[in-house]
Simulated assay, not measured.
Amino acid sequence: MGDLIEFLKQREVSEEIIQTLENEKIDASVISLMTDEELKTYLPSYGDRLAVFGFCRRRGSSRKSALFERLKSKLSKRKLSEEDGSSTRQEEHSQTTHKRNALKRNRKIEIGWMHYDEDTEVFKQVRARRGGGTRKIDICKDAKKRDILQVATGLFFPDGGNIQGPLTDFDCDLKDYQEMIVDDALTVGELYHVTKLNILRFYLTTKKNKMTAFRVPAQVCIHLQKLKRVLKTKPLLLLSLQSKHLLHLKQSAMMCHTLKTLQTITFHNLPRSL
């Protein structure tokens, strides 16, 4: 009521009209419900009535805005409180999960297979349709790199081989989810503790070993054995052998010069006609 009275005084409305409004308890909230004809009984001036109606609308709008701001503030505080509570619950749940996992003897891990591509000179993951894919297994949390390697080779090289060839043809290693070589001394449990991951992923890596690149065909080996026996037991028979046969043996031996069996063999003593 006080704001309305001050507004009427600024409009130079007579004290008698202001007193009448006070006696009738007509304040801004009541005026907002009145029609122009009803207010005319108390305010004969048309300009005063328009001004009073405008004052009451602005006051009501301001009041609604203040209420809205208070409501918005309360909702924001409630939302923050709920988020804090949710975050706290998530942290508690995470801590509980870690504690529960710490008591487990076995942990679940994922194992994939990456094979070295000679053309691009990078390791590429082998898809499931080619015998790779990702396998999930339970393993003792005290298991180390050698234990995981043993499991991985058994998974991807059943019976000692797969479509890439026998396991003995490859140099094998183990990488983690970041494709870094796994430390020999770390256990699965320690890796879980350090990384804080929900599940660990490892990759068996394979690369053709050097001996595979120089593998000697069986037929060549037979010729080498024959040549070795000839040179060792009956060197004089060299002259009676056909030149074509000796030339074939010599070429076969040159293909396999890295073999230890050729260390004692020299071709300088062979006849030039060969």
Rank of each mutant, 00 (worst) to 15 (best):
T206C: 14
A218Q: 06
T212R: 06
A218V: 09
L204Y: 11
M211F: 09
L200Q: 15
T206V: 12
T206I: 14
L200D: 11
Q219P: 02
V216Q: 00
R201I: 08
A213D: 06
L200S: 11
L200C: 10
L191C: 15
K207I: 10
V216F: 02
A218N: 03
L191N: 12
E190F: 06
L197Q: 15
R215W: 06
V220Q: 01
E190W: 03
K196I: 07
F214E: 06
K208N: 11
Y192L: 13
Y203K: 10
I199N: 05
I199G: 03
P217T: 12
A218C: 01
K208V: 07
V216D: 03
F214D: 02
Q225F: 01
C221V: 06
C221G: 04
C221S: 04
T206E: 14
V220N: 00
V194N: 06
L204M: 09
A218Y: 03
E190R: 09
R201P: 04
N209S: 08
A213M: 05
N198A: 13
I199A: 06
T212C: 04
L224F: 01
Q219E: 11
K226L: 02
A213H: 09
A213P: 03
E190N: 10
T206G: 12
K196P: 01
R215H: 09
K210N: 07
H223A: 03
P217H: 10
K210H: 07
V220I: 05
V220W: 00
N198S: 15
T205Y: 11
L224G: 05
N198T: 14
